[in-house]
Structure formats: C-alpha cells, structure tokens
C-alpha cells in the first residue's frame, strides 16, 4: 500500500512539475515573441502584405533577398563584383523580427526593378504578386506601396529658400510622386521657393529621395504607410467630389442617448434645497 501511495504522489508531483514548467516556459516565450515583433518602423519589400499578417506569413527563407542581391544590374561595372542588395535579412542587433527582409533607404534604397525579382520567388504569400500587378496581370512595380516619403520642412533647405531639387530628380516617378510647388520668396523679394511636395497616390516608398537628400540627416524620409498616413474618417467628406461621397456611403451616424434623470425635473432639483 505504502509504495503505491508513494508512486501516486510521485506521479502527481512530476505531472504538476511538467505542467508548471511548461506554463512558465510558455509565458516567457509568449512575452519574448510579442516583444520582438513590436517594431513598427520597418520598410518591407514590394508587395508585402499588411505588417501584422506579414509577420505571420514570412517563413524567413531569404529568397527575396537573394533575388534582390543577384539581379544583373547589381554588379559593379568597374570591379565586376556584386554590390550590397537592397533587401537585408534581419539579424540579431537589427531590432527587427529576426530573419525577415527589410530595407533601409539611406543604406540601399529600392531601385524598383521592372521585373520585380523579389516578389514572385516568395513561397509563402508574404509578398503578394497581385498587389504589384496591373489589370493585364503583368508585374508593375509602380503599384508597390512600401512606404510613403514625408518631408520635414524645417530641415529641408528648399523651404529655407535655397535651390535644391535632389529628391525631385532622384524620384523614379519623376514629376509624379514629388512635384515642385513654387512660391514667391518675400524675404528677398526676387527669388522663388521651390518646394518638394509628395503625392501619396503615386509614391511607392522606394526611398531613392531619402538616399539622395543632401542634408546631414535626410529631410525627406520614407515611413511605413500606417505611420505616415492619417485617416480623415467618416466625419469629413469632400462634398464636391462624388468619389469621396461614395467613401462614406456605408457610414453610420453615431447616436448617443442621454438618460434623463428620473428624480424629478431640473427645476425641482434646484429648488430642493440640497445644494450644499
């Protein structure tokens, strides 16, 4: 009797221990995993699906980065060696989810290859070929939305009145994604401000403008779409624009209900003498 009792006690103890340690491990592991995926400031390859889904889908195989590295145009004409590609695979210390592809425009921007070698090789669906294809089903890199260029006007020397159109000239969608807006320079009275304005319906977020920017730290830079863009919401509509009106077609009015006091009328409350 005593041994079977001991055995049972031992069995319960080891089971409890296993379950407890597994729970401990699970909590630590979940906490760690949740932390490492938390970096929102990251630019993904063309065609990348929504970041939250991308983190699930990417199988970290590196085929996109290898395709990027090995395109023919990446070979240095003088040395014959291939240069660093745009896409990097996040390693320890990059503070991105390890093993996922990303790029840093100031290091190597995306040169927007017309054949988009990085997208069709993706086996998992983390890079969506349809999102970078036109109606005819052909690849169209201009449809990619890797991010959105944003100008910080206080550090942009064009806003100071100094003539610079480096970003405008570097843009692969010249005159479309960035246009120059001209204003009279009242300070000198005889010069023009030539201001770069980014258009988010065209900008692909390739980062060539950021790489070309002449200031010490670029005054134009690419941010992930979710961070760079605001949302006007249903409360505002361009009443003169039919397309914008369609946007709020399904909007529901917010109705708030205020419950009336059941303890008599307001006047009664004021006259009740309970004010102090």
């Amino acid at each position: 009797m005593a041994t079977s009792d001991n055995n049972r006690r031992k069995f319960i103890a080891t089971t409890l221990q296993s379950v407890g340690l597994t729970a401990l491990g699970g909590l630590l592991w979940s906490g760690y995993s949740d932390e490492v995926k938390a970096s929102a400031l990251v630019l993904r390859p063309p065609g990348a699906i929504k970041e939250e889904d991308f983190l699930k889908a990417c199988i970290k195989c590196g085929l996109c980065a290898e395709a990027c590295q090995n395109r023919e145009t990446n070979i240095d004409r003088h040395t014959g060696l291939s240069k660093a590609g745009t896409l990097q695979m996040a390693k320890g210390g990059d503070h991105q989810l390890i093993g996922t592809p990303f790029f840093v425009p100031t290091e190597v921007p995306c040169y927007m290859c017309e054949d988009i070698p990085c997208v069709p090789v993706c086996p998992s669906g983390a890079l969506d070929q349809l999102s970078v294809s036109n109606e005819a089903g052909e690849l169209d890199i201009n449809k990619s939305r890797m991010g959105l260029a944003v100008v910080h006007k206080e550090s942009c020397i064009a806003f100071w009145g100094i003539q610079c159109d480096a970003c405008y000239r570097a843009c692969p969608l010249l005159g479309e994604a960035i246009t120059i807006e001209m204003h009279r320079n009242e300070r000198t009275g005889k010069h023009t401000f030539m201001l770069p304005i980014v258009h988010d319906t065209v900008c692909t977020g390739c980062g060539l403008c950021e790489a070309a920017c002449v200031t010490e730290k670029p005054a134009i830079f690419v941010l992930p779409n979710e961070i760079a863009k605001g949302v006007a919401g249903d409360h505002y509509v361009k009443g003169w624009d039919k397309a914008d009106e369609a946007r709020i077609e399904n909007a529901k009015a917010e109705e708030t209900v205020t419950e009336l006091s059941k303890e008599g009328t307001a006047a009664g409350y004021l006259n009740s003498g309970d004010l102090y």
Partner: peptide
C-alpha cells in the same frame, strides 16, 4: 505560442 502571439514562435529564437 505561435497561435497566441501570431508569429512563428520557434523561428524567433
């Protein structure tokens, strides 16, 4: 953990 956190959990380490 993969199901709960929404990333391939072993792949992060």
């Amino acid at each position: 953990v993969s199901a709960v956190v929404g990333i391939a959990a072993f792949e992060v380490l």
